[in-house]
Design a protein around this nucleic acid. Structure first.
Lengths: 178, 178
DNA sequence: TGACTTTCGTTGCAATCGCAACGATAAAAG
DNA sequence: CTTTTATCGTTGCGATTGCAACGAAAGTCA
């Protein structure tokens, strides 16, 4: 009978969703303050700040956004003058996307706010706890990586976050210790 | 200069969003296998399994879903015959929502799968690491709780998850013992 | 009782999303 | 060179979402 009593509040996927949604929503206010940027647009902008000219596919592969979502985000950014889209040079299919000056300006307006809010979120968390937190996230990811039914995750996110100094390792290869 | 080099892959809000989205998406496949349930419908069903008859507002308050989202989810569930909606008794505004037998059946089909997948996700994570993980999530939440611009979080999620036996404590407010 | 305010659930609307299909281009096969 | 296959970006479509506005139904206060 009551033995079951499934607790949504204790269900990990639910908890992740609630936290993530809350953080994203709050952060989107921060973006919106500067410009009317959506999350997708923000991700595109940030990625462009690291790579010079790049294609839709590249962005799609790197920031966990659907092809069409990237395409539309880029269109909006172009309409806003923050991004420039050139019809590809060597390959006629590709589109070369790059930041305009206005785009760089907008980015430099938003980046500090984003960083600041991240810092605020983490302020009370010890270095060690954050390391553990990231390691656990990685472990959950690795389960999904092994699950053929799960969505693949982007290339960029597989590289060592290098935020956590050492640790990091510990792949399904076997190292237990638990 | 290259000094800046903002790394999206290391940005906490981004990492949370990617992980959460990935988990949710994979889990929604699990729901869909049994019935064509969306996340919202799943949350409503689960919450109903704990409370008898309840209003839209109550669900809204408890499972982090917009009022309208709950309303529509309930409508779909009603159309699917998993839920019953009675026009309130003492209070004419309220609607009393309750599980039908079919709803209970569907739930008992899905719950084991959901639990199993959660277990799979956590299988390699030590008890201690999971405690830390949950504690960090709580700390992030508490920053948002103090931020007037952030969305409020639902009542239910504030209660002690009580899944982790000891630990848990260590909140900024100081109240220990639980 | 009657006028004002609040609460509850639904709905209109515009915006967004994911998915699949499409045309265009390039690469591979023959 | 021609045909077939694969890749890239866009778009059409249906579905979903959040937000605000709405009407209905209490609750409040004089």
């Amino acid at each position: 009978m009551g033995k079951d009593q499934f607790r949504l509040s204790g269900f990990l996927p639910y908890r992740l969703a609630v936290l993530s949604e809350r953080v994203s929503h709050r952060l989107s206010i921060e973006y919106g303050k500067i410009r009317g940027l959506s999350v997708a647009e923000w991700r595109v902008l940030v990625h462009l700040s690291r790579q010079g000219a790049i294609s839709v596919k590249d962005i799609h592969d790197c920031v966990n956004l659907e092809k069409s979502r990237v395409s539309r985000a880029v269109s909006r950014l172009e309409a806003a003058g923050l991004v420039e889209k050139v019809p590809g040079e060597t390959d006629g299919r590709l589109v070369e996307i790059s930041l305009t000056v206005a785009g760089e300006t907008a980015l430099s307006d938003i980046l500090p706010a984003a960083r600041a809010y991240e810092d605020k979120l983490c302020a009370r968390i010890s270095r060690q706890d954050m390391d553990t937190f990231c390691r656990v996230m990685e472990q959950i990811h690795s389960v999904l990586d092994d699950d053929p039914e799960a969505k693949r995750r982007s290339r960029m996110d597989l590289q060592r976050p290098d935020i956590e100094r050492r640790s990091a390792g510990s792949l399904p290869s076997g190292d237990p210790s638990l």
